[in-house]
Nucleic acid binder design. Structure first.
Lengths: 231, 231
DNA sequence: AATTTTAATATGTAGGACATAAGTATTTAA
DNA sequence: TTAAATACTTATGTCCTACATATTAAAATT
């Protein structure tokens, strides 16, 4: 008899720790039972009994769910399910020095994609007041443009404001955590920012242009970033 | 003397547990020391000593970092830093029944934004082979379009393929976790999918059209979703 | 020198003990 | 009788000790 492809026939030994398994089981349990935020969960001792693990292991798993914002616990009252913070745990690990290069590149592209897709929501939600504030940022920038140190700050301020204008808090937070990554990947460049289309140009497009014109402007504004993308 | 605004003067009592603090301290420590993936970390006992907490508390914090993929541990060898999975923890909590409505809406918009921003990368990376596969999906859809049950599957297949064509694994995974949310928000609708621009139209735009034409087509394809966005 | 055996060590798991906060029941005082 | 003070109960938070287990390092054997 032939031996054949071993790692198809033999299941890889699971290096899973018990806390890992308990975590999975708890997540399954919460979803299967379709608990809603506010619902009370079983007590620790009941869970240890049901799962057949020590309180220690259980608490390591619960600690994870607590980090995800999935559960909240109070003394004596026990645990309740709560609405998780979907970005919270992502924020913790957003460090360009820790994340691998492929993912960094992916994130870079992700941000460009978002930036190009913003026009639709932006034109739906833009207000006169917001545009004025954006213009102020762009003008401030022009005044102090000589100083290299300020350039990054202005970049951040301007694009940050744009995301804020979408009224989408999640989008805003998301872009905020992408910033350090973006900064890390472009900080060595000495490319004069903006290219053909400056921030001020974008403001004007936002004021008087169409959605498509704005998008086209944004594309040209980001052109030198797109240039760097690999096929 | 005036009392004034209390909750500015008096710091809110921190309900933070020790595991929370240890987690923060560890994250700070890892970033400050600028450890790189592969570097060995101090042993549990050294950390308990340095932090002045029990091994139990420390392990609850470590358990979280382990979930984030930030650290890996092996018996006897200790712990090493590793490249975290930035989406992993997000995937765990992506459940439309648990996430609050505002965030759900945010996510919905986030996906639309991505979809509108895809054209640039798509036109950079599209290959003949991919387009053929996409066309196949679109044609298959046309053949079985009568059955309501298949509609969602086709939606998923088609748009999933598009994301895959970007060659961006993170983007792909991201869209994949957004799917259930999207599905949850639109499942009650009986709007005939596609509107003016069908999947097959999009394929043709991808084949012979320009980047901007494709984007315009995508916009019209998604038009009835955009219609639902609130100002 | 190569191989086997033994020892050492760091993490994984278990279980007991007590602290603490927050409800609940009971007693006390007006 | 009711309000306030007190004692009790309970579930989580923290600490500690002990031992299992895997894996590397050292020692012993051939």
């Amino acid at each position: 008899m032939e031996i054949g492809n071993l790692h198809i026939d033999i299941e890889k030994v699971s290096h899973k720790t018990m806390a890992d398994e308990v975590e999975t089981k708890l997540l399954e349990y919460l979803k299967r039972k379709s608990f809603k935020p506010g619902d009370a969960l079983p007590k620790e001792m009941e869970l240890t009994a049901a799962l057949g693990v020590s309180r220690n292991v259980l608490r390591e798993a619960l600690s994870r769910l607590r980090m995800l914002g999935l559960i909240e616990t109070k003394k004596r009252r026990g645990m309740v399910l709560s609405s998780p913070d979907i970005l919270g745990s992502m924020e913790r690990v957003m460090d360009p020095l820790i994340i691998d290069d492929t993912t960094l590149q992916d994130i870079f592209e992700l941000r460009l994609t978002l930036e190009m897709g913003l026009a639709d929501i932006l034109f739906l939600r833009k207000t006169k007041k917001d545009i004025e504030e954006l213009e102020k940022i762009a003008l401030q920038e022009k005044a102090t443009r000589t100083k290299q140190n300020f350039r990054i700050k202005h970049e951040v301020d301007f694009h940050g404001k744009i995301y804020q204008m979408t009224g989408n808090r999640t989008l805003q937070r998301f872009q905020n955590m992408l910033l350090p990554i973006f900064g890390h990947l472009v900080n060595e460049e000495k490319v004069p920012i903006g290219g053909k289309v400056s921030h001020l140009d974008l403001v004007n497009l936002l004021k008087t242009g169409t959605r498509e014109q704005f998008r086209q402007g944004m594309r040209e504004h980001l052109e030198h970033h797109f240039q760097k993308l690999k096929k």
